[in-house]
């Protein structure tokens, strides 16, 4: 629960402490908190939803399908991240900082800045956790994907598929013209990953640790 607000707080602190002068740089850091930090916390949180439930056996023996319960938890997890991001975005728009980043894509469509990577990393975390049943492995995968795109931004955007799947196209995008296609690709990827998770979670037996069997 603390992840998204902490991510935003860190972004604001980084903006305040930035040694580089200029409104655009500060605005970029603030939007970066929404595009980079909030999605990372949401992805890791989604990765931790499966594989750590101490009452999983009780959950699997009740009439309410466990898959439904997990999807509700996912909605709450992503919903909380979205609420924090939306409030922060609202504050940035109201204070004028949103407009100070030249590639902001407007106050409405521009919300895809955080929506697309949050859903993509959330979907990746949930699908990986469903497949591996290991929150640690799923969290590590989310973090690795995020870090590779963060620290090797140039290489990650060298080719078209990489540019379409790049998580930080608003603040670090190599091709501003491809922004809309990038956001739609991330949303489609998120939908595919969430669907995969739903399918895998339908096999309840997978959710019990093999050593228990």
């Amino acid at each position: 629960m603390l992840g998204p607000p902490l991510a935003v707080a860190l972004g604001v602190a980084a903006a305040v402490a930035s040694p580089v002068a200029g409104d655009a740089t500060t605005a970029r850091i603030l939007l970066g908190a929404l595009e980079m930090a909030v999605p990372l916390t949401a992805g890791v949180a989604c990765a931790s939803l499966i594989g750590r439930d101490p009452a999983v056996e009780i959950q699997l023996a009740v009439p309410t399908p466990y898959r439904e319960t997990l999807l509700r938890r996912t909605v709450v997890t992503l919903g909380w991240a979205a609420l924090v991001a939306a409030v922060t975005a609202g504050a940035l728009i109201a204070t004028g900082w949103w407009a100070r980043w030249p590639d902001n894509h407007g106050p409405l469509t521009g919300q895809l800045t955080w929506v697309a990577p949050t859903l993509a990393l959330g979907g990746l975390g949930l699908a990986a956790a469903a497949l591996t049943r290991s929150p640690a492995a799923a969290g590590a995968l989310v973090t690795t994907v995020w870090a590779v795109q963060q620290f090797f931004a140039g290489a990650a955007q060298q080719h078209l598929p990489g540019r379409l799947l790049y998580l930080f196209a608003t603040t670090r995008g190599a091709d501003p013209e491809a922004w809309t296609a990038n956001r739609l690709t991330l949303l489609a990827t998120a939908a595919a990953l969430l669907t995969l998770a739903v399918v895998v979670l339908g096999r309840s037996e997978r959710l019990i640790r093999s050593e228990d069997e």
Partner: peptide, 14 residues
């Protein structure tokens, strides 16, 4: 499952 009560061997709670 609608008419089932189940106490597993390793009871996990929150």
């Amino acid at each position: 499952q609608q008419s089932l009560g189940y106490l597993p061997q390793d009871l996990g709670v929150y």
